[in-house]
């Protein structure tokens, strides 16, 4: 049998230059270095995608939080307290009634219970500029000895009170602070303010239906009629506010409990407000 070998390859002579260069590696380098920590593009893109997904998924949650608990600035709380104290001067019993207006959280819907107040009170509220009233009210407070600040102050709404407390201030905006408009006295259950995240509002057309306690629809049955059209009020960050005034379309509410449901263009209920007219 023929004996074969690979001696030529086995005894391949490596040029001295190769060896010298290889040995010089240890001289040229100070020592073994750790490879720098490099994040590959794939990892970076993966992390970026995760961050984007987390952000996108948290947006509805943020809206929901905004919707549920909208921080009330201290100015507003002061305004409310001052207004209440002025009411106190006139009629302490009604002030207590006012304090009962604290919104009740029912489910996750924007559920507001607004009790009817005397038109005269509403007029007072609507005609009272919120900032000026706080300035003007201080002397009045000092003038009224019958007032009990210790009782009213603890009942002031917290900073974490829901945005529903803006109802009266919303009325301020609806009825500008002009003396001429003060003659246009709001009717009970009028000027209901709803709000919802902007992504629920859609293109901006909002409709409102009023249901009585038996869930009968008041007024026109067609939701998309002008009668049910709510008007856009303002956008506060990512939350849109809108108002509906049934009296403007000729709906006079009898005493009772009514449910105002705001719909967007796609007939999706976006806000639910309960109003008690006494």
């Amino acid at each position: 049998m023929r004996k074969v070998n690979f001696n030529s390859l086995k005894n391949l002579q490596i040029p001295d230059a190769w060896t010298k260069k290889a040995i010089a590696i240890s001289g040229n380098n100070e020592g073994p270095k750790k490879t720098p920590f490099v994040i590959s593009r794939k990892v970076l893109s993966l992390v970026a995608c995760l961050v984007v997904v987390c952000l996108v998924s948290s947006i509805p949650l943020i809206f929901k939080i905004n919707n549920d608990i909208l921080p009330v600035s201290t100015e507003n709380s002061e305004n409310i307290s001052v207004t209440v104290s002025r009411e106190d001067d006139n009629n302490p019993a009604k002030t207590e009634k006012e304090h009962k207006e604290k919104p009740t959280k029912e489910d996750t819907e924007n559920h507001v219970v607004i009790e009817k107040t005397e038109p005269s009170e509403l007029v007072e509220e609507t005609n009272t500029p919120s900032i000026n009233s706080s300035v003007d009210a201080k002397p009045e407070e000092s003038k009224t000895p019958t007032q009990k600040p210790s009782e009213t102050v603890p009942e002031e709404p917290d900073a974490t009170e829901p945005v529903e407390d803006f109802g009266p201030s919303g009325d301020n905006v609806i009825n500008p602070d002009s003396p001429e408009d003060s003659s246009d006295t709001p009717k009970p259950g009028d000027c209901v303010v709803g709000f919802s995240p902007s992504f629920l509002v859609g293109d901006g057309k909002i409709y409102c239906r009023i249901y009585d306690k038996d869930d009968n629809i008041l007024g026109n049955q067609n939701l998309f009629s002008d009668e049910h059209r709510a008007s856009f009020y303002s956008g506060f960050g990512s939350v849109y506010y809108y108002i509906y005034s049934p009296s403007k379309v000729g709906l006079n509410l009898e005493p009772g409990k009514y449910r105002y449901v705001f719909y967007n263009e796609h007939t999706v209920p976006i806000c639910n407000v309960t109003v008690v007219v006494e």
Partner: peptide, 29 residues
């Protein structure tokens, strides 16, 4: 050297790979 030559069959290319091999040995240790 034989592995590099056998694989590349080119003296210059084999030189590069030869150096890189020992460089990695020294660097990674």
């Amino acid at each position: 050297g034989a592995v590099c030559v056998m694989r590349l069959n080119n003296r210059y290319d084999a030189d590069d790979c030869f150096q890189n091999t020992f460089f990695k040995l020294y660097k990674k240790s």
